[in-house]
Amino acid sequence: MDFLTDPYAVFLVRWFHVLSGIMWIGLLWYFNFVQIPNMPKIPDEQKPAISKVIAPAALFWFRWAALATIVFGLLQAWQLGYLGPALALGVGSKSAAHMSIGFGMWFGLIMALNVWFVIWPNQQKALGIVEVPAEDKPAAARIAMLASRTNTMLSIPMSYSMVAVHLT
């Protein structure tokens, strides 16, 4: 397992974490800044282009990028020796740096769980990827939208804590 803590492996994992993170948060912001606010402006007969083609493709890359970001992020924390202390928010190690990155890790974990266990199941119902009665679709779409908004909100402190560690 020594190769995993080789400096070049540490760098590669960080790069993969950033790449998958850009894919994830880029699509999250696409949903919240572009798709959701503009859906009401699209004529009904054209809406399926988004709901049947664009959104399912975006959701595919979105949810797998979320998983990849978490896997590479946790691996990076382990490589650098602070996985446990950071998840404990620096309480045991009395470290502001562990607390800072720990906040970011917890926000990221909550966001990824939101993606896989709230947004994705509800989007499947809302977009008709799984069959549900038509009257259940608006509630599913609303839950997915609010969970997506929650993640947009959390992406702000999450990214801050990720890049602010050197200040502590």
Partner: peptide, 30 residues
């Protein structure tokens, strides 16, 4: 009452507020 997260603007304001609180906690805890 309307959920504040229904508005994108409020979502961003809440995100910034959480960030400020978090930054202060990190700065002054240890």
């Amino acid at each position: 009452m309307k959920n504040p997260l229904e508005s994108l603007q409020n979502t961003i304001l809440l995100g910034v507020a959480i960030t400020i609180v978090m930054a202060l906690i990190v700065k002054y805890t240890f």
